[in-house]
Simulated assay, not measured.
Amino acid sequence: MKQAIIGIFIAWIAFSCDKPKQEQETVGYSLQGDTIFIPPNSAFKAKLKTALVQKEPYHWQMLSPGTVKVIPTQYAEIASPFAGRLTRSYLRLGMKTTPETPLFEISSPDFMAAQKVFFQEKSQLEQARKTLKRQKDLLDNGVGTQKDFEEAQTAYEIEKTEYNNAATGIKLFKADPDKMVLGQPLVVRSPIAGEVIENKAVLGQFIKDDASSIATIAELSKIWIAGQIKEKDLRFIHKLDECHIEMAAFPEKIIKAKVFHIDEIVDEETRSVRVLIEAGNADHTLKPGMYVTVNFTDKPVNLILIPSKAIFQMSDASFVFVKVAENKYLKRKIEIADTQENKIVVKSGLEAGETIITEGGFLLSGAK
């Protein structure tokens, strides 16, 4: 019995000696308001690591879905200007074009009528020119009258205007009036440099004057990407800002681009603004209609960034432990602006030059 009592007494002494040591590790600080005092002999003081708060270059980033679009001035849907029958086609998918490249030929009664008007005006202009020359010769030789000469001159000017109008009507269809032969088919030419991306021409088909396009030509070495920016983020986007394009089809490829235009109107339903981004596309990786991700990156600014491990959450607030003196720390609320990998961008609550706990702060996080 005596031995049992001695054993219990020894165990109680061992427990009593060990307990203060444990309490020293877990409750080795005192609290006054939001200020925490850590005794110099605190067992977990060595577990705390601190760092000086500094400003670092920070690139603001935002991701936006985008849709690849053809630049309107580099896109043309080709239709026949007149009703007629398609008699010849030069079209091939992928064919390179210039503004003078012939695409197809149309035999058209309307174009034939335009030719007749042109040749009629050409003939009348020549007749008016001869009449004017004859009246001038008569006047120079004292046979003609000034009145007849002036009337011939007026008639010539009228016919010249009518001829020019008829010639302009022919030139609108990229036909050369000086080389035109009555009855020749209308040659429809490409209005832009690019390549044929759609061909619906069928030899012998009759094309109505209100028919849809026969071919589509586009220049795809540069394209636009339409992205959406929330109204609240507009201050971060500027014309000519650089951004990067990412594609699900080619995840390993990143394409550099620049902001080309920012719309002036906010979409009332989505509260966003359309942003057009221009990107080089020499290898045609970006296809019109493709969905991509636009990574907007603002110019670098110096902001306060701290390790994410230094921040603690309580209710709806974020806070850090700021060293205000030796063995003295202040629990301070901060406002977070953004996150970047394992760092946090601090909007307010900290100043450069202050020292904070970066590791081991969880030992103090229960302080209330």
Results as ranks from 00 to 15, higher is better:
113 A>T: 12
115 Q>N: 08
115 Q>E: 12
117 V>H: 08
117 V>T: 15
117 V>L: 13
118 F>G: 03
119 F>I: 10
120 Q>N: 14
121 E>H: 15
122 K>V: 01
125 L>M: 13
125 L>Q: 04
125 L>H: 07
126 E>M: 07
127 Q>C: 00
127 Q>L: 15
128 A>F: 04
130 K>W: 01
130 K>H: 04
131 T>R: 12
131 T>D: 13
131 T>W: 05
132 L>K: 14
132 L>G: 07
133 K>V: 06
133 K>M: 13
134 R>I: 12
135 Q>V: 11
135 Q>H: 07
136 K>C: 05
136 K>I: 05
136 K>R: 15
137 D>G: 07
138 L>S: 05
140 D>M: 05
140 D>C: 01
141 N>S: 15
142 G>E: 14
142 G>H: 14
142 G>L: 14
142 G>V: 14
143 V>K: 09
144 G>F: 09
145 T>G: 10
145 T>C: 06
146 Q>M: 12
146 Q>D: 08
146 Q>T: 13
147 K>Y: 03
147 K>F: 04
147 K>G: 00
148 D>C: 00
150 E>G: 04
150 E>W: 02
151 E>H: 03
152 A>H: 01
153 Q>A: 12
153 Q>S: 15
154 T>K: 11
154 T>I: 11
156 Y>P: 00
157 E>Q: 14
157 E>K: 09
157 E>Y: 04
160 K>H: 04
161 T>I: 02
161 T>F: 02
162 E>R: 15
163 Y>I: 00
163 Y>C: 03
163 Y>V: 02
164 N>M: 12
164 N>L: 12
165 N>R: 11
166 A>R: 01
167 A>H: 00
168 T>Y: 10
168 T>H: 05
170 I>P: 03
171 K>L: 09
171 K>N: 06
172 L>H: 11
172 L>A: 06
173 F>A: 11
174 K>Q: 15
175 A>L: 05
176 D>H: 02
176 D>A: 10
177 P>T: 06
179 K>D: 10
180 M>N: 05
182 L>M: 12
182 L>E: 15
183 G>P: 03
184 Q>H: 11
185 P>C: 14
185 P>A: 11
187 V>A: 09
187 V>Q: 08
189 R>M: 09
189 R>K: 15
189 R>H: 13
190 S>V: 10
190 S>G: 08
190 S>M: 12
192 I>T: 07
192 I>S: 09
192 I>L: 13
193 A>I: 00
193 A>G: 13
194 G>M: 09
195 E>Q: 13
195 E>C: 03
196 V>A: 06
197 I>T: 11
198 E>H: 07
198 E>I: 03
199 N>E: 13
200 K>I: 01
201 A>G: 07
201 A>C: 08
202 V>H: 07
202 V>C: 05
205 Q>S: 13
205 Q>V: 07
205 Q>E: 14
207 I>T: 09
208 K>S: 14
210 D>I: 06
213 S>K: 14
213 S>W: 13
214 I>D: 08
214 I>Q: 13
216 T>P: 04
